[in-house]
Structure formats: C-alpha cells, structure tokens
Computed example of a mutant assay.
Amino acid sequence: MKFQETFDFDYPRNVILRMFGDEAYYRAKYEKMGGEPEVIDTQSSENRFSITVRHALEATRLKFPDFIKSRIGDHLYLRQTDAWQLDQGRGRLDIEIEKAPVQIGAALHLTDQGSGSRLTLDFDIKASVPLLGGKIEKTVAGPISRHMQKDLKLTNQMAADYA
C-alpha cells in the first residue's frame, strides 16, 4: 500500500538536516517518546548519515484491531533505519516490525518552505500474509501515520536546539 504524508517544520531545511545528521537527536527523541532505544548501527560521513535503532512502542496506544494485537502483544518492537543524503535533503526510512510480517519503507524529501521546511514521506507498506496482506497494510497505515505525526511534532520541538 502506498500513501504520502507531509509535515511542515518551523525551521529551515539546514537546521532540520543538521538535526537529522546527529545521533544524539535520535537517542533523545526515542527516550522522550517513552522508550529505551538500542542503537544498533550508526554510519556518518560528510554528507551521509544513517542510524538503525531498535525501540518499543505500547501497542495499545496505536489502536490496532484485535487480530493484529493478538499477534504482537502489549509492545510493538521496531527496528528502524533512518538514512540521509544530507547535502540533497533526501533520505530513506525503513521499519521492520518484530513478530509481524510487515515492512514499512518511506522515501524522504526535505525542502525549504517559506521560513520553515516541509518533509514529504512517500510510504510503502507491505504485508506478506496470503489473502490478508492488503487488509493488514490498510490497518497498519492508520496507526503508523498517527505515530509518525506525533514523532514529527516532537522533532519540530527538538529542532529549537539546532537553530
């Protein structure tokens, strides 16, 4: 299932990209979201940055239907990789959900927008479950979209430290 989301930041592209290239931002963000992040891998060069983090979310907060809740339990464990080509404002987000045959990917593009910036996320959700894959993809899209908006609102607040 493919869909697009946008988010407008209060800060220009260069500020947001400085933050997206800082491991400390990711650690602080996940901690503020109530988890204990485990940084699995970080790679950084002049114009590239990537980080893979494993973290947990309370499944009850995501409002999944019962047939998904029964499979994942009380907590949803995610392995998330954020990778950025910082000089181009382009990136990729890949999320693996443990105990669920669902993969989420998004192409990311950050552009200046007035005095702030806009992040465009082109999502692709794939569920590899015969006969139910499409239903699962639609069911997962709503909670993931709501969680992403919460994540980006927090990110916008944290950007003040990079301005």
Rank of each mutant, 00 (worst) to 15 (best):
D74R: 10
R54C: 03
S70Q: 15
G73C: 05
D74H: 04
I125L: 10
E38M: 15
R71T: 10
Q85S: 14
I51H: 03
A107K: 14
R71H: 07
L86S: 01
R146E: 09
G133V: 13
M148W: 04
I95M: 01
R27Q: 04
E31R: 14
G116Q: 07
A141I: 06
M19Q: 04
A59F: 02
A163F: 10
A59P: 04
E96T: 15
E58S: 11
S115I: 07
D124E: 09
Q113D: 09
Q4G: 10
D8C: 13
A56W: 00
G34R: 13
G34E: 08
P101Q: 14
Q4R: 14
I51C: 01
G91Q: 03
K29T: 05
A100Q: 13
H55I: 08
E38P: 07
Q149K: 06
Q103G: 10
Q113P: 13
F20R: 15
D87K: 15
A160C: 01
K32Y: 12
E46D: 13
T155D: 01
H147C: 11
L154I: 13
R61E: 07
T42H: 05
S44M: 14
A159W: 09
E58L: 05
W84G: 03
Y25C: 00
R71S: 08
P65V: 04
Q157K: 11
A141T: 02
Y25L: 13
K32M: 12
